[in-house]
Simulated assay, not measured.
Amino acid sequence: MGYDFSITHYLKTTWTMARYDYRYIVKNPVFLILTLVGVLFIILMASTIGTIFGTSTYPVTWKMLMIPGTTFKFFLLILTFLFSGLLVHRGSITRMGGLLDATPVPNWTLMGSKIIAIIMMQLTLLAVVMLTCMAFQVYHHYYNFEIGQYVIHLMVYGMLGNIVWLFVAIFVHTLFKNYLAGFFILLTLFIGLPFLSFVGVEQAIYQFNKGPDLDYSDMDGFGYILPF
């Protein structure tokens, strides 16, 4: 039986390798530790975010969603920068690069599987955020979860910026042979870009990976921005 060189076969190979890389990520102790620390930060921030002038309020969904954008996103991008480098250089790290280069698999299959694995990791982290916020709401006897709002903010709108950073991470790691060097370059970019305003770059059009905020109102939902 001959080897199948069809696009369908390569797409199946990409998905199989992506699942393999995804399991490699979620079983890594660094992933588990940073995820746990991120969850603890969410709980810590949630315990104070509902207080207005010393008066406790219900942990409504839009308040809970203020937390991931300022707290958990840092941990998500740290894991994205780290594991994108580990996956890109996994062949050289495990000394299997020569064997991978000899396989009859196109480069887009190998790279595509890594991108899909990182996206799956990001979605997993956002699902952890959603479940943590919902558990906090249950703890305070608030049961109007508004799951649709979680999905739009985290899984749809929030993922746009995460995917942009993913492609930047892949690009940087392909330029550096050492994944730690690429990681620190990406970390420097992530921390340094917001400070461009101090050197005169203040126009919104020059702010990297920034878009309009997704405002939500209890009266008209997302208003004119989204039709729900």
Rank of each mutant, 00 (worst) to 15 (best):
V201I: 07
F171M: 06
P29H: 06
T80Y: 00
L175K: 09
V37D: 05
I118D: 00
V199P: 01
I78R: 03
H89K: 09
V105S: 11
M96Y: 12
L189H: 01
G192F: 03
W165Y: 10
G221V: 08
F31A: 05
L186H: 01
D21A: 07
A204K: 12
M155D: 03
E202T: 12
I49G: 12
I170T: 13
T94G: 06
I147E: 02
T35E: 15
G200M: 00
M17T: 15
H9P: 10
A181L: 05
R90S: 13
T61N: 04
I115Y: 04
I119E: 05
G211R: 03
F167V: 10
L76N: 14
A169I: 01
M111Y: 09
L87F: 00
T57F: 15
Y157K: 09
Y10E: 06
Q137I: 07
S6F: 03
A169P: 03
G69E: 06
L154E: 08
M159S: 04
E202Y: 10
Y206G: 00
L154P: 02
T48A: 14
F195P: 07
V172P: 04
I119G: 04
P59D: 04
Q149G: 04
T35W: 12
T188Q: 07
T16Y: 11
K210W: 07
T71W: 12
L126Y: 00
W62D: 14
L196Q: 05
L180A: 11
M155C: 03
A181C: 08
S217T: 01
H173V: 08
L166P: 05
W62R: 06
F171R: 05
P68C: 02
D220V: 15
L131D: 04
V156C: 09
T109R: 12
Y139Q: 15
V164Y: 04
F136V: 13
Y20V: 08
G85N: 07
L196T: 08
V201T: 02
W165P: 05
L180F: 11
S92E: 13
F81V: 05
F195T: 10
G221D: 06
L180I: 10
I93D: 14
F198S: 13
N107P: 10
F136I: 15
T70C: 09
T132W: 01
G221C: 04
V201M: 08
P194V: 06
D215G: 11
N28E: 11
M111G: 10
D21Y: 11
L77P: 07
I118G: 02
A181Q: 05
I115Q: 02
A169K: 00
F167S: 09
E202F: 05
F145P: 01
S217F: 02
I43R: 03
M96T: 15
M130S: 05
Y58I: 14
D101H: 13
G38S: 03
P59C: 06
A135L: 15
L40Q: 06
L77E: 13
G112K: 02
G54K: 01
Q137Y: 05
G192P: 02
I225K: 06
R23A: 13
L126A: 03
F171P: 04
L125E: 00
M1H: 15
G54W: 00
N178C: 05
I170P: 09
F75R: 02
S113V: 01
P106L: 13
